[in-house]
Design a protein around this nucleic acid. Structure first.
Lengths: 292, 292
DNA sequence: CAGTGGTCTAGACCACCAA
DNA sequence: TGGTGGTCTAGACCACTGC
């Protein structure tokens, strides 16, 4: 009765367990199911060529299932997911197990819990801080904006991926990608110059006009218009000097050192969906980082 | 019987609850205590002049108590704290409540859980990565060290705190502070120049000789020799050009932009204990940051 | 083998929110 | 008032470690 699952899915051990739970509609004493399932899992079940069967607790499996629903778009950004009780019934586990799965997803900023209201799919729009991934702050005060940033789209064109761009975006070299250049200004002072590259397929139809027309974070546009959710990112930071073009756009001198911030942003499953090279003017702003 | 506590402590509601628990040595049915306590807490107890009684769940109170024991040195760095069961008995709560308190402390890197062994006080020594707060990595590969860093203590002297140093360390201006300058080299290439300031009182007796004699992270020395544990830090990053002295020490040109990393490190209770100004050479290394 | 942290459950009650 | 997430408990069993 579980043939279909074990045949089509690579993570068979996990799904065997869950299917076992799902099959047992009412017959057994439910409290014993998970114990049996874990034995199966740690023991002989699963692929015999794997020396470490990679024991995975139930809540991790639930987490994976929720993640799949998120990725498949079953629940849209900013919408509420089913309540813990509903999910517990659906997955045939206790509420506490669902809770632990959701706890981890909330810690990873994929879900947002709101007491009394429900659990919601995180989004880059409607966020308290305008730019979730931007770490640049003004020297005076910790307000993210001295007023909102002024955005200026310089360019948006299709180009063929160079080898490093292709590698960063996990596409083939020479494949068509989108290249965008923009400037962010604070208090009318150009402060950030960004070049960014996006894989062509998911962002088909993106133009400078649409970028200019949209008000709000660019990642919010990616979510709502293209269904691409940036989930996490990594940045590599260096100190550099600008070239001639960059000087003009940032209205700065060629001898002013700038922060080079190269960001790779990922969607679900660690799939890279954006490469962004930023130049930050750091005479009136600084890059803030918290170490724990 | 709880007068002493309510008089001397500002967070009275919290301690009333805990005292109530601690007083109840054996008499009542223990399972009802916490429920009662929470009613007291959310209801009329506590300070009447506080409009929002600041409801604090039990596990947060336990967390605070554990934190106090850590701060008081009841459990030394790298030593094991009592088991969850022992703590549950001690605080008269369930194991699950202690567990949740420890979970949060582990998430903040104050404790480290090791299955089958126990829960241990986190330390800067004996860590997998040599430097817990250092975010600089070589371009090639993700090995933190191309071999370990070579450390060179340039200077260690007492100075009077300037206004900005005093402010950062929360001491009075003109008060005596320690100033250290050192260079870190990777593969014989000077890469990091650091100036750091420490409050005089906690670090009385620190000399260049002791710094040179100690092998291992400086924060580990602070822990073992001075009982000061750095718990978290914040960094402000800019791009700058070096001055003449810095050029010499880093063997770089005055036109090479460098990363300026100003770090404030905190011990318990958000008390600042170190100000560190670093200059990073970023032609063969980069500063890495993860955004979630 | 005993002791530790890790998982899972079931049930109770609380705080918060919206209708 | 009902539904949601948040807290707390008690008890069972599992995985890991070291004697």
């Amino acid at each position: 009765m579980i043939d279909k699952v074990t045949e089509t899915d690579s993570k068979l051990t996990l799904h065997i367990v869950l299917q076992a739970n799902l099959m047992n509609t009412e017959s057994n004493s439910l409290s014993d199911i998970s114990a049996v399932a874990n034995l199966e899992l740690a023991g002989s079940a699963g692929s015999p060529n794997n020396p470490t069967p990679a024991f995975s607790p139930l809540y991790q499996q639930i987490k994976t299932l929720i993640l799949q629903s998120l990725q498949a778009g079953e629940w849209k950004p900013s919408a509420a997911i089913p309540s813990e009780m509903d999910l517990a019934v659906r997955y045939k586990v206790s509420q506490g197990t669902v809770r632990k799965a959701i706890d981890e997803l909330a810690a990873e900023n994929l879900l947002v819990r709101r007491q009394g209201k429900g659990t919601f799919v995180a989004t880059h729009a409607e966020q308290q801080v305008q730019y979730r991934f931007l770490r640049l702050f003004p020297d005076s005060g910790d307000l993210q904006g001295e007023g909102p940033a002024q955005r200026q789209i310089i360019d948006c064109k299709r180009v063929r991926a160079s080898s490093d761009i292709a590698k960063a975006l996990a596409v083939r070299q020479g494949e068509s990608v989108l290249q965008v250049r923009r400037v962010l200004s604070f208090a009318s002072t150009p402060t950030i110059l960004e070049d960014l590259w996006l894989p062509g397929a998911p962002f088909k139809g993106l133009t400078a006009e649409r970028l200019r027309a949209y008000h709000g974070p660019m990642y919010a546009l990616f979510e709502t218009e293209f269904g691409v959710r940036m989930v996490r990112a990594e940045e590599k930071i260096r100190a550099v000097l600008p070239d001639a073009d960059q000087c003009v756009l940032l209205k700065t001198s060629a001898r002013t050192p700038l922060l080079s911030v190269e960001r790779t942003a990922y969607t679900y499953n660690d799939a890279p969906m954006e490469l962004r090279r930023g130049l930050y003017v750091t005479d009136t702003h600084y890059y803030r980082n918290a170490l724990n």
